[in-house]
């Protein structure tokens, strides 16, 4: 308890507890809210606050990447899907067995806590690739990526390439035709309609 109070009054400690508290509250809203807009807003702002943790730890580069990737790209893609809902109305959720959800959720949460808390308890946690003084974060991340994690990194790149090609093939069936021009000609419109009927 004394440790907690002492750390609360340092700049880093205060920032950490503030960010943790806000992040948990925001993600709680994300899970519990029936409203699409609230869920989306709180998830996005939670992601912003998580980047705050990276900044506290001095990992500026990762913090900014968290901002760009999660807030700027992934959440924005979610919001594309949200366009199909009436954002001002509440969603009726189909709740399955509450007890099962509670037990499964609780167990997985417990497992996560154990996994992350175990090395801290034994105090055997060590930085295998510590940050170098005077060298930027980006360089450190780059060195590790291109030495130890080269294979997973390249595999991830290949997977993204595969996903991109698949996406283009799925979306690009009639890419060489302009949709507006098809609409102008009646014949083209019929074609689209018949396609819909077939589906």
């Amino acid at each position: 308890m004394e440790n907690f109070l002492a750390s609360l009054f340092t700049f880093q400690g205060f920032a950490f507890y503030l960010f943790s508290f806000l992040t948990i509250i925001l993600f709680w809203i994300t899970v519990m809210s029936n409203n699409v807009l609230y869920a989306m807003t709180s998830l996005a702002s939670g992601m912003v606050l998580i980047s705050g943790f990276f900044f506290i730890l001095g990992a500026d580069f990762l913090g900014v990447v968290q901002l760009i990737v999660y807030v700027g790209a992934i959440m924005a893609l979610y919001s594309f899907a949200m366009m199909f809902f009436d954002a001002t109305r509440e969603i009726k959720e189909k709740n399955t067995n509450g007890a099962v959800v509670f037990v499964l959720g609780g167990l997985s949460a417990l497992m996560l806590v154990l996994m992350f808390a175990a090395p801290i308890h034994s105090e055997s946690i060590q930085a295998l690739y510590p940050m170098h003084e005077g060298v930027g974060n980006a360089q450190d991340v780059g060195i590790v990526l291109f030495t130890k994690y080269l294979v997973p990194f390249e595999v991830a790149a290949l997977m993204l390439l595969v996903a991109m090609i698949a996406g283009i093939i799925l979306a690009g069936k009639k890419m060489d035709q302009s949709l507006t021009e098809i609409m102008d000609e009646d014949a083209g419109e019929d074609e689209i309609l018949t396609q819909k009927d077939e589906k």
Partner: peptide, 25 residues
């Protein structure tokens, strides 16, 4: 910050939530 240029880009990227949420709300 050491990554100033990315920080500015990232923050401007986060700025898209303004018009987005405004339009949806």
């Amino acid at each position: 910050v050491n990554v100033g240029i990315l920080f500015v880009i990232g923050m401007m990227a986060a700025g898209l939530y303004g018009p987005l949420l405004a339009g949806m709300a």
